[in-house]
């Protein structure tokens, strides 16, 4: 990387604002994330952390400002997005097929989040923490370079939190980027912190 200007960042958002239901949720947010960088969005409940991630992912439009996305993005929010009657492995394999990644990636992610022993259990039987681990495993297996993690630590036990920290560190080391939103401190050391206030 001799000339940093030649390599575009994974995502570059300038002066973005978001309005939902007639209420301004946040405004004037500027952030850039490059390869190997991580960013934490912090703020109390209702400050618009999830909305910010959804705007960055392109799911909802921003009121003004520009967002340049230069890499595939994976979103891990509170929605499970797995068919409840499928076995866990089958349900995650569906997304692996959608992502066009090979099975080893998924197997590795299942192993990493200790989901191997749950592979044959129907998705609807999973507990809160197990659901969160399934969401994180899908994100890890997706092969996307930028991860958007919405409250990734919610419902996780200590061992799973360590697993999440390891996964994030490995992803950054491999040249990925992470934008996480959390109302409490994750064990991971983030490069940048963006504070959102309740408006």
């Amino acid at each position: 990387m001799s000339d940093p200007a030649a390599v575009p960042p994974l995502l570059d958002a300038r002066n973005i604002a978001c309005q939902r239901g007639g209420r301004m949720i946040f405004a004037g947010v500027t952030l850039t994330i490059g390869a190997g960088q991580s960013l934490l969005v912090r703020g109390p409940n209702g400050a618009g952390k999830s909305s910010l991630l959804r705007v960055l992912g392109g799911l909802i439009p921003c009121l003004h400002g520009t967002i340049d996305r230069h890499a595939p993005i994976a979103l891990a929010d509170e929605h499970l997005a797995l068919d409840p009657d499928n076995r866990l492995e089958q349900a995650l394999a569906f997304w692996a097929r959608m992502d066009g990644v090979d099975r080893e990636r998924l197997d590795f992610a299942l192993h990493h989040f200790r989901l191997r022993e749950l592979a044959d259990i129907p998705v609807r039987m999973l507990s809160t923490g197990q659901r969160k681990r399934a969401i994180l495993a899908r994100t890890m297996a997706s092969g996307a370079r930028l991860w958007l993690l919405d409250e990734p630590g919610n419902g996780l036990d200590a061992a799973s939190l360590r697993g999440l920290g390891d996964a994030m560190a490995a992803h950054l080391a491999a040249g990925g980027g992470i934008i996480a939103a959390s109302h409490f401190d994750l064990s991971h050391q983030f490069g940048t912190v963006v504070e959102l206030d309740r408006r």
């Binding site: 992912g57 392109g58 799911l59 509170e78 929605h79 499970l80 959608m98």
Partner: peptide, 13 residues
């Protein structure tokens, strides 16, 4: 829509 499947599909372009 409610289970987030559409969101995940949109994220995949």
């Amino acid at each position: 829509r409610d289970s987030g499947i559409f969101d995940q599909l949109l994220m995949r372009g």
